[in-house]
Write a protein that binds this DNA or RNA. Sequence first.
DNA 1: GTATTTACCGGGAACGATTGCGTAAATAAA
DNA 2: TTTATTTACGCAATCGTTCCCGGTAAATAC
Lengths: 340, 340
Amino acid sequence: MKFEAVTIKHIAMELGLSTSTVSRALRDSHEISQATKKIVLDHAQKVGFKPNRIAQSLKERKSLSIGVIVCEIANSFFSQVINGIDSVAYEHGYNVIIAQSMESAERELMNLEYLTSSSIDGLIISVSTETKNFSYLKKLHERGLPIVFVDRVIDDIETHKVIADNYRGAYKATKHLVERGYKKIAILSNNSGLSISQERLEGYRDALKDANIPLRENMIAYCDHGGMIYSEIESAMKMLLKQRVKPDAVFAGSDKITTGCLRFMKQKNIRTPQDLALIGFSNTDLTELLNPPLSVIKQPAFEMGQASASLLLSLIESKKPQNKFETRIQSTELLIRKST
Amino acid sequence: MKFEAVTIKHIAMELGLSTSTVSRALRDSHEISQATKKIVLDHAQKVGFKPNRIAQSLKERKSLSIGVIVCEIANSFFSQVINGIDSVAYEHGYNVIIAQSMESAERELMNLEYLTSSSIDGLIISVSTETKNFSYLKKLHERGLPIVFVDRVIDDIETHKVIADNYRGAYKATKHLVERGYKKIAILSNNSGLSISQERLEGYRDALKDANIPLRENMIAYCDHGGMIYSEIESAMKMLLKQRVKPDAVFAGSDKITTGCLRFMKQKNIRTPQDLALIGFSNTDLTELLNPPLSVIKQPAFEMGQASASLLLSLIESKKPQNKFETRIQSTELLIRKST
DNA sequence: GTATTTACCGGGAACGATTGCGTAAATAAA
DNA sequence: TTTATTTACGCAATCGTTCCCGGTAAATAC
């Protein structure tokens, strides 16, 4: 079953004109008389003509659509980022094609192959926790595919990048814990390979150092799948809690980890913040309704999406190959509530 | 700046073959000798040939992509639905193009025009709260565009529909409130024009009737934008609470309204459930971590997405125009927690 | 009255992949 | 050896648009 669309050819036939004339009339070319233009436009309007974007894409060698790969849509941070991307793309007449890696390198690669088979003009990607091999991405980039990294970036590939100020965010969060009198501050980090993890860990380290609190390596735990599977949060927390010196506060490195951590504490009847304080990166707008209301570091997700989209569009629409790239660092917000 | 892809023509040239031979070899046609096939395949592999999907689409008159219009991605219910759609579409080699109406009829129409300019093979839509005029959608459907409605459906258009069992969900929720001893049960409904609102209201009505509790019209309030703007929840709640007979429980008709309601109660220092009980439709996985843990009716969002995608694909891939359509009603789950 | 410009429009070749048809060579059947 | 059949490939049209060449008439210039 298919959708029979009216084409330029039909209009040409019905009006006794050539396709070139119709095309030009529709594109308001100076080579066509006002009279003819009016006839064509009116008729096109009447029969509901819509140019076939596929044909245009083939001819113009661009698809007017951009691909977005994130780990998961059902994650407040990424859905807000997508929102931002969408708003900019839409304004410029671009489609957004979204793919989810689900934190799997394999799915990410498949998405990548899929999106790039000549059907996208550019790509915005936040790499999965699993991704270790960036050669395919690199090859695409070398072959000229415009790419913008958002949130989780790769140093190896030189292009525009948009990130939150993870270092300062983590620093502020840790400093806040210190100021509240916590001394044994653990960090529940995302996968250690991720840029965001490293930056956040660095902020945590420096904040402790500046407060003259010695860093204990066993206060650092990792969730290799970014908290995608609850059990990894569970075991990481168990590990932290069975140390000789138990932590009195936890700093969680991602949205999923933060809420997962709270879930764990609820299950184990660990009171927050009396037994264990909690702060973490999170973008859900429900954090203040939680029990207890969570102190969080919030990223400007929507704005990050907007920024990455406009950077990507500038890459796509620039005639010459670009060689000056920027990394936009957008500041985070520390929201202090009851959990610390 | 563009991405120079290798085409079938390049391969043909380099191998001294015709494009037809190359094409056929790649598609494993029986008309090509094994030897030639191997040569072509190896060379294609070497140069990283990927067929141009745009050209294929033009030729085959299908784009292998489906459009999805929802009000907002950053909404747990819809992001889960999209997840389900994505999983099925992906398996069948289809792209998913997502557009957000933001509950605006105007944006919805623009998205519709945009997606359907020959670039999607089918559409899954959950109409916006604002949409009153379905003529454009109807025209598209009549012209043969396969459409599946999910969640918010339109009776006028005969096609596959996937909904949650809103009636029974609302009935169960209301009955639960009754069983807990609440007598003055208010409902904070979504826009009255929406199918889901009507079904949920019906369930609420019947549950009250079956419990011999008289229905008070002033216990019914509407949020015309589905809670998209907080102030409408606020004023609806204020209206309910300034009645002579104040409600002792509220049943909220959507995810945004449910959490918005809780937010309102927090702000006004209304204790839950002591002062006012709360139950509502919601799909966020944070409800049990809220204060208090919320009793909710949860919809099988992921499964609804899967169902709508497979129904859509069956429409797209069926040769003949379909005339037998089904409405899949998927059951909801009542999760009882502390708020009631 | 001829030359040149302008205004308008049609023909046809792309874009990349697919496919019906035609045909040479190779093989089988007569 | 002749005819029929199969094998293996090329030619060219097609999908819907766009755009480079032209071409023809009228309008203007010389």
